[in-house]
């Protein structure tokens, strides 16, 4: 017996797959740019091609991000990202404990998915940080690197471009790590493939 909840509307699923593909392109080309010409490294893409792909993917990602923000603002999906102050840390620790120990002891999920709660507290905070803090910084610094003439030349004696680059790389790296953790946590459903299936058909399935 299973409960099916329709949690992932079509627009979210389309946005999600586009976002995922673009992110992979950006990580791959970003690494190629960052470590270009490294001795003993096998270069899978030419530098100029990596620049072109990175720029195009970044511009599409920006457009897709704008759609995501607007979509969340005008649809019901936005409410899943709202963080409440009360019990914030307690819930976060409870969820962490579940991932670290509880799930191995076959304990019940402390925050089961329902129509009002798509994300557990740990997912919620990481998604909010990734999408509403990391992404804007990544996009703004990316545009700074694309149009270096708009940047402050020197900031306390350090190149403005360099500061922008360090920020862009650092946030890009953090979001890449987030992506890996995100993909892994998606295998923590009822079966390893359950949550991936949900992202395809839109339905979250709970088995009794």
């Amino acid at each position: 017996m299973s409960n099916r909840i329709y949690l992932y509307p079509v627009w979210i699923r389309i946005w999600h797959i586009i976002n995922a593909i673009l992110f992979l392109v950006l990580i791959f080309t970003g690494i190629a740019l960052r470590f270009a010409g490294q001795e003993n490294a096998v270069s899978l893409i030419r530098f100029d091609q990596a620049v072109a792909w990175h720029n195009v993917a970044a511009i599409i990602l920006t457009a897709s991000y704008v759609i995501f923000v607007i979509g969340n603002a005008i649809s019901r999906n936005g409410r899943y990202y709202r963080i409440k102050k009360e019990n914030f840390w307690t819930e976060l620790i409870a969820q962490f404990k579940f991932y670290a120990f509880g799930m191995f002891r076959k304990e019940k999920h402390p925050f089961p998915v329902n129509e009002e709660r798509k994300f557990n507290p740990l997912q919620k905070i990481s998604y909010v940080l990734a999408m509403y803090a990391g992404m804007p910084v990544l996009i703004i610094t990316g545009f700074g690197l694309l149009f270096p003439e708009i940047l402050i030349q020197q900031f306390f004696g350090i190149s403005g471009l360099l500061i922008t680059d360090v920020l862009h790389f650092s946030i890009g790296f953090i979001l890449s790590v987030f992506l890996i953790v995100h993909v892994y946590t998606c295998t923590l459903g009822q079966k390893p493939g359950t949550l991936f299936k949900s992202m395809m058909n839109g339905y979250h399935e709970e088995h009794d």
């Binding site: 470590f35 270009a36 620049v51 360099l162 680059d165 360090v166 890996i180």
Partner: peptide
């Protein structure tokens, strides 16, 4: 590193090392 910016040439070894450590740590935890 300090005065200009050249994509691919600006490599701060400390940031690179830190990122490898974090990445390695996450993979090990997984």
């Amino acid at each position: 590193l300090n005065q200009s910016y050249v994509i691919g040439a600006n490599r701060n070894p400390a940031i690179n090392m830190l990122s490898f450590i974090i990445f390695g740590g996450v993979v090990l935890v997984i």
